[in-house]
Nucleic acid binder design. Sequence first.
DNA 1: TCATTTGTGCAACATTGTAGCATTTGCGTG
DNA 2: CACGCAAATGCTACAATGTTGCACAAATGA
Lengths: 157, 157
Amino acid sequence: MIANPDTAHSHPAAPDAPSARELITARGGRVTRTRVAVLDVLRSAPRPLNHDQIAAELEAAGEQHDRVTLYRALDWLVEQGIATRVAGSDRAWKFELVRDTGHRHAHFHCQRCGRVLCLDEVEPALAGALPAGFRLEQAELVLHGACADCTAPPPTP
Amino acid sequence: MIANPDTAHSHPAAPDAPSARELITARGGRVTRTRVAVLDVLRSAPRPLNHDQIAAELEAAGEQHDRVTLYRALDWLVEQGIATRVAGSDRAWKFELVRDTGHRHAHFHCQRCGRVLCLDEVEPALAGALPAGFRLEQAELVLHGACADCTAPPPTP
DNA sequence: TCATTTGTGCAACATTGTAGCATTTGCGTG
DNA sequence: CACGCAAATGCTACAATGTTGCACAAATGA
Ligand SMILES: [Mn+2]
Ligand SMILES: [Mn+2]
Ligand SMILES: [Zn+2]
Ligand SMILES: [Zn+2]
């Protein structure tokens, strides 16, 4: 059996995790339909999602959201440190919730199927130091290659 | 004195480095005006450049090149392993020549001035292993923060 | 409920890159 | 050198992903 990457490596929101409403009000933001909806999607997403994927999830749930409003909700989440952007190979940013603050992890980008997934065990390590005068604020490590699904042999016919 | 990042960390083409023409013909490509021009720009570029910056260099040198042809020349260089793409924070890819094959290095992205520069001493190191079945093909480490110029105090008035 | 200020929805625009296709050009061959 | 053909080019459209401006709606505190 081939592992299903949609569930194999998911990050279900912990039962004690703050609700969407809590996350928003804690930052003095207004609790709006779109923000709550986006947060709910991200909280149960198994991997970083781009704007389109989020919109698709919302439509699947029967919710209609303006494209620009989605962008702005996502921008706000990032500004507030609730979510982070992850660069993919296409031009579209992917978004994921910030889990334990300070927990840094790398991402794997499958060049076959295009998915990006979190490598919670792999930490961006720096072998070497920054030149003098440089201030590091964030390290981003993306590994490119083929995921387990895409290296697996085709199913026997 | 403040280090000038345009020269402080440049990668001048070594005197024995292959010429643009050599690089192209070695891959069975045709030596065209645009390919040579792009290669010459990249060979003397102090840092990864995006499409626009390359076009600007060319215009400064009095050369006019079609936008699409530039994209295609860059694509070809990447396909051939002569250049690589570096992701920036804007949507535009940056390009740099591949130096010693096998030499991997990280990049620093200054969130103040937007420049991306090569950190030849910093190697993308993996603390942790990939899950079974995953094949790694390339590691990309980008450090985000403020460069020496942008952390330096403003000049005394 | 009311006032204030934040966020939304829409239309228009910007940037970055691709696709199709007729035309030109590099370059191996005679 | 002249030919011929594949490889590149130069358009013009188009696609994808965001962003901006602004009138309107809705969340929140009083
Ligand atoms: Mn992640
Ligand atoms: Mn570099
Ligand atoms: Zn895959
Ligand atoms: Zn800077």
